Lab assay of single mutants.
Amino acid sequence: MAAGGDHGSPDSYRSPLASRYASPEMCFVFSDRYKFRTWRQLWLWLAEAEQTLGLPITDEQIQEMKSNLENIDFKMAAEEEKRLRHDVMAHVHTFGHCCPKAAGIIHLGATSCYVGDNTDLIILRNALDLLLPKLARVISRLADFAKERASLPTLGFTHFQPAQLTTVGKRCCLWIQDLCMDLQNLKRVRDDLRFRGVKGTTGTQASFLQLFEGDDHKVEQLDKMVTEKAGFKRAFIITGQTYTRKVDIEVLSVLASLGASVHKICTDIRLLANLKEMEEPFEKQQIGSSAMPYKRNPMRSERCCSLARHLMTLVMDPLQTASVQWFERTLDDSANRRICLAEAFLTADTILNTLQNISEGLVVYPKVIERRIRQELPFMATENIIMAMVKAGGSRQDCHEKIRVLSQQAASVVKQEGGDNDLIERIQVDAYFSPIHSQLDHLLDPSSFTGRASQQVQRFLEEEVYPLLKPYESVMKVKAELCL
């Protein structure tokens, strides 16, 4: 049975990233139509530049190519590739079939990587351009969430054990800070992308030097003109047959890092959902379990974690691919890159769409948070109580021993009897502590235990987050809708 299948058929496997999760716009960027249309555009740009620099290419040939950029006979191309065992030459023939007058000058002087690699770089750039505003929107939604809850005390956790208090907004800023680093890295790697350009079979530009009869300047002009037509500021000066596969490492490393950030955020949300302090959106008709109707599973956060793990592992592909590119190139890269580049971007696209949807509907339960604080705060307040007693004339050592005994009794009630923490009640009825009984409410005010959390939130948002989001103001209103 021949390899390949009808990918629109229910009898043929289709990647869930495309069929179930990723956005239509990201799927289109990695589609065959987008790819092969870009090949034709690159052939047109090459012909236009070659004509401008004096090669015998007519206006009629150029116009014929322009008129057929979208006229792609995919069936013919597939048949040609089956016959020739070469995808680029299959599309040269297919393009030439609908451009008979231009057929002889299509791909003039070029090698397969002229269309293959340059198209990949265009796709990487455009895919990054799709991700950047999506990530900015996630940051914006979380920034709104953090600002609104900047002063809401909550129990902090280290080692997932109760620690000092923080605020809900401050905790959210930990998430935002990681995503801001990801946004900066995505922008950097996007701006650092260079075009492969017009380089020939081993990167020496020998074929173009021959076409222009040894004119170095025209060869350099050709490279520059096509690079500018493709919208790049610069091209690699040095290439082998391909652009260095280190570029793929750079791009997928940034995406993998984004995956790590999203995994951490969504894990926190899942843990908070278990504590009943916070939940992701839950639709009115949504079913959490087929057997347990009360369940409210954090399905979206779980999906993000599941896909983020996949995204983090994909960076190993370009690392290994770059390491086995012998001399000017081997074909070890080809099949692998067809999979890992598309999957990385479709996965990143999915987790950003999902995280935006989550961040637009996060639900906080202040009463649950308050109750958990009441359970733990008495123990945390013991040092403040000791200091207040010393100020009232008591002995630190005597007070410490009193607190120690009462704390152990209260802990026994919590752990052995399943009761509430009654340390404060014990202190309130103990005559030894009568000098500070009137101060206990103040000493137990949760806001006095959150330090500068709310001020940190305000400063972080104003100095770091809002300036970073400013270039994306025009796209901030787009909502994230999930079908599944």
Rank of each mutant, 00 (worst) to 15 (best):
2 A>W: 06
2 A>Y: 15
3 A>N: 15
4 G>N: 15
7 H>T: 14
12 S>V: 15
16 P>R: 10
19 S>W: 09
20 R>L: 03
20 R>E: 00
23 S>A: 09
24 P>W: 11
25 E>P: 05
25 E>M: 13
27 C>W: 09
27 C>P: 09
33 R>M: 12
34 Y>G: 08
34 Y>A: 12
37 R>Y: 14
39 W>R: 00
39 W>H: 08
41 Q>L: 11
44 L>G: 08
45 W>K: 01
46 L>P: 02
47 A>H: 03
48 E>K: 03
48 E>N: 05
49 A>N: 02
49 A>T: 04
53 L>S: 07
53 L>H: 06
56 P>R: 10
56 P>N: 10
59 D>R: 09
62 I>K: 06
63 Q>C: 09
68 N>T: 08
68 N>H: 10
68 N>D: 10
69 L>S: 09
75 K>V: 10
76 M>W: 13
78 A>Y: 11
78 A>R: 12
78 A>N: 12
83 R>D: 13
83 R>A: 12
83 R>M: 10
83 R>Y: 13
86 H>S: 01
89 M>Y: 07
92 V>E: 06
93 H>W: 12
98 C>Q: 14
98 C>P: 08
99 C>G: 04
100 P>L: 07
101 K>C: 14
103 A>W: 09
104 G>L: 10
106 I>A: 05
106 I>T: 07
107 H>E: 00
112 S>I: 04
115 V>I: 14
116 G>H: 00
116 G>W: 01
117 D>N: 01
118 N>G: 08
118 N>W: 03
118 N>H: 07
120 D>F: 07
122 I>N: 00
123 I>S: 10
131 L>Y: 09
131 L>P: 04
133 P>H: 14
133 P>R: 15
136 A>T: 15
138 V>R: 01
145 F>W: 10
150 A>C: 12
151 S>W: 09
152 L>M: 11
155 L>R: 02
159 H>M: 01
164 Q>P: 02
164 Q>V: 07
166 T>E: 00
176 I>P: 01
177 Q>N: 14
181 M>D: 11
181 M>K: 09
182 D>M: 04
182 D>V: 03
184 Q>L: 11
185 N>D: 05
186 L>T: 11
189 V>G: 12
190 R>W: 08
191 D>Y: 08
192 D>E: 10
192 D>L: 08
192 D>Y: 09
193 L>C: 10
193 L>E: 04
195 F>R: 03
199 K>Q: 05
199 K>I: 02
203 G>F: 01
207 S>I: 07
210 Q>R: 14
213 E>G: 13
213 E>C: 13
214 G>E: 13
217 H>Q: 07
218 K>D: 07
218 K>M: 09
218 K>W: 14
218 K>E: 05
221 Q>W: 09
221 Q>N: 10
222 L>F: 06
222 L>T: 03
223 D>W: 03
225 M>E: 11
225 M>Q: 11
225 M>Y: 15
227 T>R: 06
228 E>M: 10
228 E>G: 10
229 K>S: 12
232 F>I: 00
233 K>R: 13
237 I>T: 11
238 I>R: 01
240 G>E: 01
241 Q>A: 02
242 T>K: 03
243 Y>W: 01
243 Y>N: 09
246 K>F: 04
250 E>S: 14
250 E>G: 13
257 S>F: 06
258 L>G: 03
259 G>H: 05
261 S>Q: 00
262 V>A: 14
262 V>S: 14
266 C>P: 11
266 C>V: 09
266 C>R: 08
270 R>E: 06
270 R>I: 02
271 L>I: 13
274 N>I: 02
275 L>D: 08
277 E>N: 01
277 E>S: 05
278 M>W: 05
280 E>F: 00
280 E>T: 04
284 K>T: 15
285 Q>I: 14
286 Q>T: 03
287 I>S: 03
288 G>T: 03
288 G>R: 04
290 S>L: 02
291 A>C: 04
292 M>V: 02
294 Y>F: 06
295 K>G: 00
299 M>N: 08
300 R>D: 04
300 R>E: 03
302 E>W: 05
303 R>E: 02
304 C>F: 00
306 S>G: 07
308 A>Q: 05
310 H>D: 03
312 M>W: 02
312 M>H: 04
312 M>N: 03
314 L>T: 06
317 D>K: 05
321 T>C: 12
321 T>W: 05
322 A>I: 13
326 W>Q: 07
327 F>H: 07
328 E>C: 04
328 E>W: 01
329 R>Q: 06
331 L>R: 04
334 S>D: 03
343 E>W: 02
347 T>P: 11
348 A>N: 04
348 A>Q: 04
349 D>P: 02
351 I>K: 05
353 N>S: 13
354 T>M: 15
357 N>R: 06
364 V>K: 06
364 V>E: 01
365 Y>A: 09
368 V>Y: 04
373 I>T: 07
374 R>D: 15
377 L>A: 03
379 F>V: 05
381 A>H: 05
382 T>G: 05
382 T>Y: 08
389 M>N: 04
391 K>N: 13
394 G>P: 07
396 R>S: 04
397 Q>S: 07
400 H>T: 04
400 H>W: 03
404 R>A: 08
413 V>W: 14
415 K>H: 06
420 D>V: 08
423 L>E: 06
425 E>T: 15
426 R>N: 09
426 R>P: 03
427 I>A: 04
427 I>K: 01
427 I>C: 06
430 D>E: 12
431 A>R: 12
432 Y>L: 06
433 F>Y: 08
433 F>E: 03
437 H>S: 10
438 S>R: 11
438 S>I: 13
442 H>R: 12
442 H>I: 12
447 S>N: 12
448 S>G: 14
449 F>A: 01
450 T>W: 08
451 G>Q: 03
455 Q>C: 08
456 Q>H: 08
458 Q>E: 11
461 L>C: 10
461 L>V: 13
466 Y>K: 14
473 E>K: 14
478 V>G: 15
482 L>E: 08
482 L>S: 10
483 C>T: 11
